[in-house]
Design a protein around this nucleic acid. Structure first.
Lengths: 239, 239
DNA sequence: TCGGACACGTGATTC
DNA sequence: TGAATCACGTGTCCG
């Protein structure tokens, strides 16, 4: 806890009241640092304005940090830096798990296309996948993320020597590279070599995957469907 | 950017030299505050020890904050408080989506119990939902996420024609590519061309960035610190 | 006693 | 100017 106690002391005055009123007693003079100036009248000595401003800034920053700590489970140390670090790790865990579960859903859907004729009522409606991966939804500002990626070209070719060549071209959108990387990483493929090149307008992607003869067809299908799901439904390729 | 420039100024003294030596000139006497004590001999004036300590603490905290910003997409304002706030919102979005997808998986599985024909693959076993929000603790399976990325080589070189060349080599870890992409996308750089190549053990990254002469130094510093923050602290490069 | 973690007041900078 | 943000040095508390 250490510093939180002090923070608590600080918040005791703030959190309960929307705004702290009259903190003039709070800005007590340290050994008469500032008692001299400003005989009175205009109490804002313009220097102590900065003081209170800075105080509020620190307060807000600590509040936010506190809120962050509340959202992240398993905070080990209450250290400021540790809180941020734990948050980072946690975010990465969430991202990874999300990618995993989503690809899992995709696999299940592709394996059981008949799942659509189930009882309509409960059915939360198998979300359109592109929306899922790209989401962080309710994005007013985030139209970039949800802006569709257009698939320009996709080839998945067996190559002999137990390798599969994937060649992909698509339009470049904000977050496109991230989504592509997440997609392929979530596959848990044996990637021999992967290469992504971003040109001004487009994204080129080439990867060599290790797969024995039996796996190839399955993998090919899997990749194609996953990519198709990630891309714009109106894309020239997916139509 | 605002405050990052100052950070750059701060790092100018750190990143290039393992430790800044002889900061006695740096701890210049403010109107002769501390000039009196410690004639010499023991250079650690015990007061300036605190100064350097505090400096490092601030540095680390900013690094962490920067790393946090790298993990969260769609950072709007570079404000410290805003970074934390965006991170909080993002975490809540992730938690929500994860809960959705996992319940979806559970429903699908309960409807199609035969989908278990794939026990051998990773299949992380859909967690019981209540465990979801609270947990993510001590991930047995997820040691990959926390496995550190080691920075093997980093060069940021001005190139004339208003371009900056970034050449990066690091060890390949799960999520490494995703994190790298997020990092660079979050910069909002004018990327002329980017290229990521994944080899069995390592990750090669080359990008050309458009930046006029004035920006170059700032960008260079910014990138170096961001990368350093993303990488393993014990990495041979960051030491 | 030494070091780590913190809040504080201050000056600088930027818009 | 004026408000906002930051880094800095400092004193203090605690293990």
């Amino acid at each position: 806890m250490l510093w939180m106690e002090n923070v608590g002391d600080e918040y005791k005055n703030y959190l309960q009241t929307p705004y702290f009123l009259e903190n003039q007693e709070y800005s007590w003079t340290i050994d008469g640092y500032y008692d001299s100036s400003s005989p009175e009248g205009a109490p804002s000595s313009s220097a102590s304005k900065n003081i209170v401003s800075e105080r509020n800034r620190r307060k807000q920053l600590n509040q936010r940090l506190f809120a962050l700590r509340a959202v992240v489970p398993n905070i080990t140390k209450m250290d400021k830096a540790s809180i941020i670090k734990d948050a980072i790790d946690y975010i990465q865990q969430l991202q990874e798990e999300l990618a995993k579960t989503q690809t899992e859903i995709m696999e299940m859907e592709s394996n059981n296309p008949e799942t659509e004729e189930q009882p309509p009522p409960p059915l939360p409606l198998p979300l359109p996948l592109p929306l899922l991966l790209g989401s962080h939804n309710a994005n007013v500002f985030n139209s970039t993320t949800s802006s569709p990626i257009q698939l320009l070209q996709l080839k998945v070719m067996p190559m002999g020597d137990n390798t599969l060549l994937v060649s992909l071209t698509c339009t470049k959108r904000a977050g496109a590279m991230v989504r592509l990387c997440q997609l392929f990483e979530s596959f848990n493929l044996k990637i021999i070599t992967a290469n992504i090149t971003a040109l001004p307008g487009t994204l080129l992607n080439t990867l060599f995957i290790e797969a024995d003869e039996k796996e190839k067809d399955g993998l090919k299908m899997q990749i194609e469907t996953a990519i198709a799901a990630l891309m714009d439904p109106q894309s020239p390729m997916t139509s």
